[in-house]
């Protein structure tokens, strides 16, 4: 049965983010004032890398177990790896190297329960790997081609692994052509456990309800939304279950696709899309 491989140090998993860094990402989410899509997305990605690092930490001696290889590709003024600091320029990085090499560590304060019914403020260290960029057009096709060139050797090297998950996050149409052929080529890559999964997350520019994990094209507002739907893989069983447990209405044909997402849906999408089937 496909999509059943457990993640282990011998058979790590791979998560690649494709992040739209075009000029319109400098605007806020549709219908909400405040910080830009680029800034809020950067926070969400940093938070996800934080959580993945913690997920892979089991004890004092071993440090972070290399259950994942991770990459963040930006597409906007340039197309290429976009992590900062010591990881600059690297397409895929082990989660141990991610954890040990944030570009910087910020101190943030948060409120936590004190165990006696009250709240107390504590300072925590919040690592940052990824800074927002919002400039120029949307070369999504080029980003999809680059993803394929990065992941083709990875699937060759890891035939027993759960297949790679690529999460494309964009707020607008590709400016370098129809992205569906490049997406199709990317989704042809496979390990023995199944084909690469490509999920698409569209960030809202107008106020309005999001379309969440649809099973077909009914209700999609335009040709552009239909393109992204067609580019999106079906959710594998364990991710369907994760989405259902989060309260989403999910069917057997549900795809990894959200249209018109706000930041809350972005964070949930990232969490659901990167839940492991099993972590050994």
């Amino acid at each position: 049965m496909p999509y059943t491989a457990e993640i282990s140090r011998q058979n790590p998993s791979c998560i690649l983010f494709l992040i739209d860094q075009s000029g319109s990402m400098g605007d806020p989410f549709g219908g909400e004032p405040g910080r830009s899509k680029a800034e809020r997305l950067a926070d969400a990605i940093n938070r996800l890398l934080f959580e993945l690092s913690i997920r892979c930490t089991k004890d004092q001696t071993e440090g972070v177990r290399n259950y994942y290889e991770v990459g963040v590709i930006g597409y906007g003024p340039r197309v290429g790896p976009t992590l900062g600091g010591k990881l600059a320029g690297q397409a895929l990085v082990s989660i141990r190297d991610v954890a040990n090499n944030p570009a910087r560590v910020e101190e943030r304060r948060r409120k936590v329960e004190d165990g006696a019914g009250g709240l107390v403020e504590e300072t925590i260290r919040f690592p940052v790997w990824f800074d927002p960029v919002a400039q120029d057009g949307t070369p999504m096709c080029e980003a999809l081609h680059l993803a394929r060139s990065i992941l083709a050797p990875w699937v060759q090297a890891h035939p027993a692994s759960f297949p790679p998950i690529v999460i494309n996050i964009t707020d607008g149409e590709a400016t370098d052509g129809d992205p569906r052929p490049a997406a199709g080529d990317l989704r042809k890559l496979a390990t023995d456990d199944g084909n690469l999964l490509l999920f698409n997350l569209h960030l809202s520019s107008q106020p309005g309800a999001p379309i969440l994990y649809p099973q077909d094209e009914t209700g999609l507002p335009d040709e552009y939304a239909r393109q992204l739907f067609q580019m999106s893989s079906l959710l594998p069983p364990h991710i369907r279950e994760a989405a259902q447990s989060e309260g989403y209405a999910i069917g057997p044909q549900s795809r990894g696709f959200v249209f018109n997402a706000d930041i809350v849906e972005v964070i949930k999408f990232l969490d659901i899309g990167t839940r492991p089937k099993g972590l050994r």
Partner: peptide
């Protein structure tokens, strides 16, 4: 403890 182990 490094930051990730401290949080964990």
């Amino acid at each position: 403890l490094p930051w990730y182990a401290e949080e964990k």
